[in-house]
Write a protein that binds this DNA or RNA. Structure first.
Length: 467
RNA sequence: UCCGAAGUAGCUCAGGGGUAGAGCAGGCGGCUGUUAACCGCCGGGUCGGGGGUUCGAAGCCCUCCUUCGGAGCCA
């Protein structure tokens, strides 16, 4: 590997014509010419395009190896980078040697053919689907966006906090959780009343996989000032849709000495930054998505980057919807949790651009969101975008202990379950705010890929954990 | 979980009571500085599983499984 050249460098022109190079990768197609040469398209994942390797019949292993190469073979080709005589590419590698490092032992049943596959089929061969154009492109986009996330926060003085995956506090309150246990499921230790004795379990109490790092990251926010989490989260909901996963990655920044307005500005700056990086750095892959997956994707990202996000009060949004004359499936009135039809109407028809809707009724929002002076609303925000609806949800957090306790109780929860979270309000409390973004949804938004299971390497969903 | 649709060759699909088809892929041959090439020949299927109806089922009925889309929940 170390001595080889990546195809991205060759195709970018970083390797001058006339230079000798070693290329290592996997074969996409082979075409023979009886004029005495074969064309082997090689892919190494470094960029969208394959490199054409020209193999002359004079190669000693031409008859024994080269003409037996099929799609999927791993090869090492050594030769000179030359200007191409053909039309499809500017440069190619004229091979002095081609070594087949790994054969495809049964080409007849090798699943990855040089043609378009359905995404459903590719999910059944998730261990091989990274060899396709679409999954390769998605993988590079995912990587680039992830790097952009870290770059955005790092450049602004945020610290990346590794919040725990396993949590024993049953207090995150964001949906069904997966249990983590070392007890014998068939025969767990029991208390006299027949209930499972969790005191005997690994952590001495019930433990689960996290559904959000927010509560933990708040504690670091109230010391480090600007922090974020970026890691896997888990939901044991039996939801089978193209927008849900049981395991997904979430980005949750948290800023101290900040209010909702600062939070909304952070969200806007954040989205614009990561999508600008994507458009700048993955032109090849985005051109592919634009051509074969979603003709609107580049236009959509460009518009988001260039448009100032509108700020709109929830009450104002409801009034606009009520006066719209539009027939909605779900009726509109103050107090409702807006459906996606409402959100899309606002962002696509009214504003025709991204909106941050703020100050939602307290009854439809979480206990930790800061109560506004009107006593009816909380300092929550949703960022809505054309073509998708809600992309970010966030809030200013309730920093006043009495108000927080009242809200916890009001929601039927118990303050003692939140003792350490409450401590943050007892010792040097400060206004702070943050938001959450589902990373896979951002990738869907950027690429237009419809099913979320195709933007994560090995999707976890109900009844799906084969790979 | 609910509603709807679909499971036939390695892949994409046609066939809808009378004994299994095409294109692509694969093998062999031809042709060409080729471009997910083109032409010819060949191999390849428990028609998702089980049960039933029938002289006869891939097809009709029942049931289960799986997948997809929508809804709910949400990120």
């Amino acid at each position: 590997m170390s001595a080889s050249t990546r195809i991205a460098e060759v195709l970018a022109g970083s390797v001058p014509v006339g230079t000798k190079a070693t290329i290592e990768g996997w074969v996409r197609t082979r075409r023979d010419s009886k004029a005495g040469l074969s064309f082997v398209a090689i892919h190494d994942g470094s960029c969208f395009d394959a490199l054409q390797v020209v193999a002359p019949a004079e190669l000693p292993n031409y008859q024994t190896d080269v003409v037996r190469i099929t799609t999927g073979c791993a090869v090492r080709a050594i030769g000179e980078i030359v200007a191409s005589q053909g039309k499809g590419q500017s440069v190619e590698l004229r091979a002095d040697s081609i070594e087949v490092v790994g054969w495809v032992d049964d080409p007849d049943t090798y699943p990855m053919q040089p043609k378009r596959h359905t995404p459903e089929f590719l999910r059944e061969v998730a261990h091989l689907r990274s060899r396709t154009n679409i999954v390769g492109a998605t993988t590079r986009v995912r990587h680039t966006l992830a790097q952009a996330v870290h770059r955005f926060f790092h450049e602004r003085g945020f610290f990346w906090i590794h919040t725990p995956i396993i949590t024993a506090s049953d207090a995150e309150g964001a949906g069904q959780m997966f249990r983590v246990s070392t007890l014998d499921a068939a025969n767990p230790p029991r208390l006299p009343d027949g209930k499972v004795d969790w005191d005997k379990d690994f952590f001495g109490k019930e433990a689960r996989l996290t559904v959000s790092g927010q509560l933990n990251v708040e504690s670091y926010c109230l010391a480090m000032s600007k922090v974020y989490t970026f890691g896997p989260t888990f939901r044991a909901e039996n939801s089978n849709t193209r927008r849900h996963l049981a395991e997904f990655w979430m980005i949750e920044p948290e800023i101290a000495f900040a209010d909702l307005a600062a939070d909304a500005q952070l969200a806007e700056d954040f989205l614009k930054f990561i999508f600008r990086v994507l458009l700048d750095e993955r032109k090849d892959d985005m051109a592919f998505f634009e051509k074969f997956v979603d003709p609107e994707c580049v236009k959509r990202l460009t518009a988001m980057i260039e448009t100032k996000f509108t700020r709109m009060d929830y009450g104002e949004a409801i009034k606009i919807l009520e006066k719209s004359g539009e027939k909605f499936e779900f009726p509109v009135k103050w107090g409702i949790d807006m459906q996606s039809e409402h959100e899309r109407y606002l962002t696509e028809k009214v504003v025709k651009g991204p909106i941050a809707v703020v100050n939602y009724p307290k009854d439809i929002k979480a206990f930790y969101m800061r109560l506004n002076d009107d006593g009816k609303t909380v300092a929550a925000m949703d960022v809505l975008a054309p073509g998708i609806g809600e992309i970010i949800g966030g809030s200013q957090r309730e920093e006043r202990l009495e108000v927080l306790d009242a809200r916890i109780t009001e929601m039927g929860l118990h303050p003692k379950d939140y003792w350490w979270y409450r401590d943050l309000r007892r010792y040097g409390t400060v206004p702070h705010a943050g938001f959450g973004l589902g990373f896979e949804r951002a990738i869907q938004y950027a690429t237009g890929i419809e099913n979320i299971r195709d933007v994560i390497p090995f999707p976890r969903a109900p009844r799906q954990a084969e790979f």
